[in-house]
Design a protein around this nucleic acid. Sequence first.
DNA 1: CAGTATCCGGGCGGATACTG
DNA 2: CAGTATCCGCCCGGATACTG
Lengths: 105, 105
Amino acid sequence: MNPLDDKICVQAIKKIMEIFGGKWSFQILGELHTGAKRFNELGRNLGISTKSLSDALKNLEANGVVIRTVIPTTPVTVEYSITSKGRDFERVFYEMREWGKKWLV
Amino acid sequence: MNPLDDKICVQAIKKIMEIFGGKWSFQILGELHTGAKRFNELGRNLGISTKSLSDALKNLEANGVVIRTVIPTTPVTVEYSITSKGRDFERVFYEMREWGKKWLV
DNA sequence: CAGTATCCGGGCGGATACTG
DNA sequence: CAGTATCCGCCCGGATACTG
């Protein structure tokens, strides 16, 4: 890697932290990686308050990594899933998993 | 990826967030990736308060991803650098950079 | 230079109650 | 079910001053 790449790397990390830096963002993406999930389903799996979940999902949606789909049942169902932009980020998760397998207990 | 791998992945993400979840941890690693740096050097580059930097470095050191080396000059010099555990994490940074190049502006 | 000590304010995130 | 609306405590992180 040359110095220019290093700069790009640091900048990318910074921006990525702005997008995913919240306490739950990474874990939400991790959940959605296994498939679309509904609001309360995510809440249950993660043990997160509705407020925090709502805030985090809005942020992720605004950054184009998650998409919200309303299914007109009664009562209404809402599914959250990963966009292609978000799915591309799974390469990062993959490396995290490999690192975890090697270094975390 | 099978469901077991998914579980490992989510757990790894969770633990990684515990280690690197702080506001500055990733950026500090990003800085150290370019080579060992001194305390105030990091502070200047990142625009971070001494307290936050001190806290973050202690945490990273406790988790074995950063090492602190005292050089007995006068006044004393302290260098922070990445351990092999931390260096392995650069594969994650590499993927972050690639993602950034593709999706960020 | 490399921190520690102290104070301080804002905001994040949880708990709870409520709505369509 | 899928949120919104409040309220609130806590802790993170910045600013500043000080030490060896």
